[in-house]
Nucleic acid binder design. Structure first.
Length: 256
DNA sequence: ATGGTGGTCCAACCA
C-alpha cells in the first residue's frame, strides 16, 4: 500500500501534474492540500477517469484538502471537533481498515501574528482529536502539510532560519505532543540522505540552492508504523514547469 | 538590508 501527500498550491493549476504523477508513481492513497477551490469545483470526473475515488473539503481561494483513493472512502470528518474553524484544513476518511487524516496545518506567518496564535490553538485541538481517533483505529495515518520542520536537520540552514515560524520551539513542542500520542514520523524510521526537504519557497531561487524545509510529514500509529517499508520525498515534480512549491512525500506499507 | 515568486483574482492577501 503506497500512501502519499502533496501540497499542490491550487489543484486548478496543478491537476495535469497530479494526474501525470499518479500515473507514474501509482499511489493507492494520495492526500492533497491547498486545492484552493470549492468542493463542487473539485475535478471528480478526471479523478474517476483515472480509476480513483475521491472526497474533497474545499474552500474558495484559500486552503482546501482532498483525498484520492483506489478504494472507496468512508466515514468522512471535515472538522476538528470543538474548534469551530471556518477554514477547510482537515479531511479524515476510512479506506478499507485504514483511517487517513489529511491535514493542512496553518502556516502561522510570523511569531507575532494572530495567525501564529491560531496555529498553536489549532494544533492543541488537533492533539485531542487525534487522541480520540487513535483509540478507534489501529491503523491510522496522519499526513499532510504540517508547516513545522520537526528538527534542525529538517532545515537547509538552521542558523539562517533561526527560531522563526515553521521552526519555533512552541510549534515543535506541539508536534512532539502528537508524537507522544504514539504517532511515528515514518520518514525517520529509515536511513535517509542529508538535506532532504519537501518545500522550497518560490523566491530567491531556493529550489536551485536546495534551501528547503521538510514540513510535509507522514505520521503513523504504532501498528501501521511497524508495517512501513520505506519513505521518501519525490523531488522530481518540484523541477517541472510551473511547479507547486512542495514536493510529494511517499510511504509504503505491507498492508492490503 | 530588503525583497525575491507564485496563486487567486484585479487589490490585496496568503504563503
Amino acid at each position: 500500500m503506497k500512501l502519499a501527500t502533496w501540497n499542490v498550491n491550487s489543484l486548478t493549476v496543478r491537476l495535469p501534474q497530479v494526474l501525470e504523477w499518479m500515473q507514474a508513481v501509482k499511489p493507492d492513497v494520495l492526500v492533497l492540500q491547498e486545492i484552493k477551490q470549492l468542493t463542487e469545483a473539485f475535478p471528480l470526473d478526471a479523478i474517476r477517469e483515472a480509476g480513483f475515488h475521491a472526497l474533497a473539503n474545499g474552500q474558495k481561494t484559500y486552503n482546501g484538502v482532498a483525498t484520492i483513493s483506489r478504494w472507496p472512502l468512508n466515514d468522512p470528518v471535515t472538522e476538528i471537533p470543538a474548534l469551530g474553524d471556518a477554514q477547510r484544513r482537515v479531511l479524515a476518511t476510512t479506506i478499507n481498515d485504514l483511517r487517513v487524516i489529511n491535514l493542512y496545518v496553518p502556516n502561522g506567518q510570523s511569531l507575532e501574528s494572530d495567525k501564529y496564535r491560531y496555529k498553536l490553538g489549532w494544533l492543541a485541538a488537533l492533539r485531542d482529536f487525534l487522541a480520540a481517533e487513535l483509540k478507534d483505529h489501529e491503523y491510522l495515518a496522519v499526513l499532510g502539510d504540517f508547516n513545522i520542520a520537526p528538527e534542525d536537520r529538517d532545515v537547509y540552514d538552521p542558523a539562517d532560519w533561526g527560531d522563526d515560524v515553521l521552526c519555533s520551539a512552541p510549534e515543535r513542542a506541539a508536534l512532539q505532543e502528537l508524537i507522544k500520542l504514539g504517532l511515528v514520523d515514518v520518514f525517520r524510521q529509515f536511513e535517509q540522505p542529508e538535506k532532504i526537504f519537501s518545500w522550497w519557497d518560490y523566491r530567491a531561487a531556493r529550489f536551485r540552492r536546495n534551501a528547503g524545509l521538510r514540513i510535509d510529514l507522514i505520521l503513523a500509529s504504532p501498528a501501521l508504523a511497524r508495517l512501513c517499508t520505506t519513505s521518501y520525498v519525490d523531488r522530481e515534480p518540484r523541477s517541472w514547469e510551473r511547479p507547486s512549491d512542495h514536493a510529494p512525500v511517499v510511504a509504503e506499507f505491507s498492508l492490503w
